[in-house]
Amino acid sequence: MSSEAMTQRPGLPPVADSEAWERQLAALRVREKAATRELDAIAAQRRRLPMVEMPDYTLVGAEGPVRLVDVFGGRSQLITYHHMWRDGAAWQCGGCTGHTSQYTRLGFLEPYDARFVIVTQGEIGEALAYRETVGNRMDWYSTAGSDFGADVGAPAGGGFAVNVFLRDGDTVYRTWHTDGRGTEQLSHIFPLIDILPWGRQEEWQDSPPGWPQSPTYSGWLDSPDIARRYGPG
């Protein structure tokens, strides 16, 4: 595109006519479609991963102790989000609290014979009270008295993680795991923000000169923010 076709002010995208804009969008779309095909290929590889048989762990839910196989709720597939936890803290990890706040309707998993739950190292009474405070709607389970969290990448005092399991009768297998930025693909928060003209506005991102940028995480809602927006009061 020639420089004559665009005008620009600091901190704003250049302004182009419709024809020039369509050409740039078409060029970007080639890369977007290639990324979609690559994600399809990754998913195909994921479906071909082997799996690992799990011991018969016992967690604690709202109704008391429960075997891992029963956390499936009769379904064949289970996704667990392992929420970071600090015993006795009024507010738990803002990233985990914000991430899980987006999962308010999970009925779409039922036709796929699957369930999604939260697991934390916190004592179940504290965990359920926090769930209520921040307006989280998923079922929560505690692994405080079990090696389950530590064995799947979410030990006490450690970070967050996502794990996926498959049940065959009473036998449970671990099929997938991710943590860190790997969880972004399970979110609609960042995909929505990333299509905005200014994106996440975090200083690590590759943005044009003059774009608004702030320290990493500064735009994220913290746990008290989530409670004010979605909690009972």
Rank of each mutant, 00 (worst) to 15 (best):
L68T: 00
W176R: 11
Y173H: 14
G157Q: 05
R181M: 11
H177M: 06
Y173K: 07
G169P: 10
G169Q: 03
W140Y: 10
F116V: 03
R86Y: 14
E38W: 13
F165V: 05
I193F: 10
A34R: 14
R67D: 05
T100Q: 10
G74C: 02
P197C: 04
G98W: 05
R115S: 03
F160Q: 03
V66R: 01
G157Y: 06
Q92K: 05
F160T: 07
L128G: 01
S214Y: 15
R47D: 08
N136P: 02
I189E: 13
E19H: 06
M138N: 09
I42G: 07
L28H: 11
R9E: 06
I195W: 13
P111S: 11
A129Y: 02
S214E: 07
L25C: 10
A35F: 13
Y130C: 01
A34I: 05
V60T: 13
G88L: 02
A227S: 12
M1Y: 12
A44H: 15
R200W: 08
P215E: 00
T80V: 12
V162W: 08
R37H: 12
A44S: 14
G153Q: 04
V15A: 12
E184I: 15
S142V: 01
I118H: 05
A44D: 13
H83I: 09
R105A: 14
V52E: 15
W198M: 09
E22T: 11
W21A: 12
G107F: 03
A150M: 08
N163E: 09
M51S: 15
W211S: 13
I193T: 11
Y57M: 00
A150I: 04
H188T: 09
G135T: 00
Q77Y: 15
H83M: 12
G159L: 08
L39F: 13
P155W: 01
R67E: 07
Q201E: 10
D147G: 12
E123P: 13
I42R: 15
P65G: 01
G199Y: 11
Y103F: 15
G73M: 02
I189Q: 11
L68P: 01
W91Q: 07
D139S: 12
A227K: 10
K33I: 07
P14R: 06
F116L: 05
L59S: 02
S146E: 00
Y173E: 05
S146A: 02
R67F: 09
S2L: 03
M6C: 10
A154N: 06
D17C: 05
R23F: 10
A156N: 05
T104W: 06
T171A: 08
L106A: 04
G180L: 10
V71C: 07
G64W: 00
A35M: 11
